[in-house]
Design a protein around this nucleic acid. Structure first.
Lengths: 140, 140
DNA sequence: TTGCTTGCAAATGATTTGCACTGCT
DNA sequence: AGCAGTGCAAATCATTTGCAAGCAA
C-alpha cells in the first residue's frame, strides 16, 4: 500500500522509508521524530525528516503539529482508519480515538454546508481534544 | 475583560498589550505575528511575542499552530465565542465558523465518554476543517 | 553510468532570551 | 526609588538544505 503510493509518484520504497512506515505502524499512536529515531537508531535524522516529508506529500504519512516542541507523525488515514486525537496538555502524549459513525456523518454534513455558505471546499477535518491524560490527571 | 484577566494574575494591562487585544478583536479571524505587526507597526516583534505568550498564559489569547510557517493568534474563546476553523491548505487563510449547538452538544457528550473509557479528562476541543478557500478553490 | 538516496555538517527561520533602558506606581 | 515592561540584538532549536559519497536501475 505505502509502496504503491510511492511508486505512483515515481518514488522508491527504500529501506529507510520502509523502516519509517514499519515503526509508524508499530506504535499505535503518533510519534515525534526523536521518538522515532529512538525506535530505529539506524536512521539518520535528516533522512528521516526528508523521507517523512516526502511520504507526507505522497499521502503515506500525516504530520501533526501542536503547540509542543516536536511535530508528531502517523500513517495517513487511508492506510489506517479515520480517527481523532486526545492530546495531553501536560506531557504532550497523543492518543487515537474514533468517533461514532453517526456523529462523523453529522460533522461531514455540517462541513458540506460550508461549501455554499463560504465558498470553502472541505477536504478533510481534524478533531483534537485537549485535556489531561490518565498519567497527568492528578495535576493542577 | 482582558484587563481583569491580567490584573488577576498581577500583570499590567499596558499600552502594548491593550494594542494587541484591540488588533485581535479588530480582525475577525486569527492572524500571524507578521500580520499583527503590519496592523500595528509601532509594536516591537519581541514584545509582541512576549505579550502574546503572557496573555495566552492568562487566558486572554489563544495560539493556533498548523503546518504553516507562522502561528496564528486570536482572542481566547471566553472573550468571544466557541468556534472552529476553516483552514485553507493553499494560502494558509484561517476563517472562523460555529457549529450547530446540538452538534456541539453531541461532541461534548462523546468526549465525556472518554473520561471513563481512557481516563482522559477533556478540557476543550478544536475542530479544524482543511480544504480550499474561496480564493484558492480553482487550483489543483 | 545516471540519477535518486543518504548522512554529515552547515544553514534557515520562527520564536525566545539577555541586558540595559524606560516608565509606571 | 523600585520593579515590571520594552526593544534591540544575540541565542535557540526544530527542521531544512548543500554537498560528496553510496546504491539501485
Amino acid at each position: 500500500m505505502a509502496r504503491e503510493r510511492l511508486m505512483d509518484r515515481d518514488q522508491r520504497y527504500t529501506t529507510g522509508r520502509r523502516r519509517l512506515v514499519e515503526v509508524l505502524a508499530g506504535t499505535g499512536a503518533p510519534v515525534t521524530l526523536p521518538a522515532l529515531l529512538a525506535l530505529a537508531p539506524d536512521l539518520s535524522q535528516s533522512s528521516a525528516y526528508r523521507n517523512l516529508a516526502l511520504m507526507e506529500e505522497a499521502g503515506v504519512v500525516r504530520r501533526l503539529v501542536h503547540g509542543a516542541e516536536h511535530a508528531h507523525y502517523e500513517l495517513a488515514e487511508d492506510l489506517t482508519e479515520h480517527h481523532h486525537h486526545l492530546i495531553c496538555e501536560e506531557c504532550g502524549l497523543i492518543t487515537d480515538i474514533t468517533l461514532d459513525a453517526a456523529l462523523e456523518r453529522s460533522l461531514d454534513r455540517a462541513f458540506d454546508g460550508l461549501a455554499e455558505a463560504a465558498g470553502f471546499s472541505p477536504r478533510h477535518h481534524a478533531l483534537d481534544v485537549f485535556g489531561r491524560c490518565a498519567n497527568c490527571g492528578a495535576d493542577a
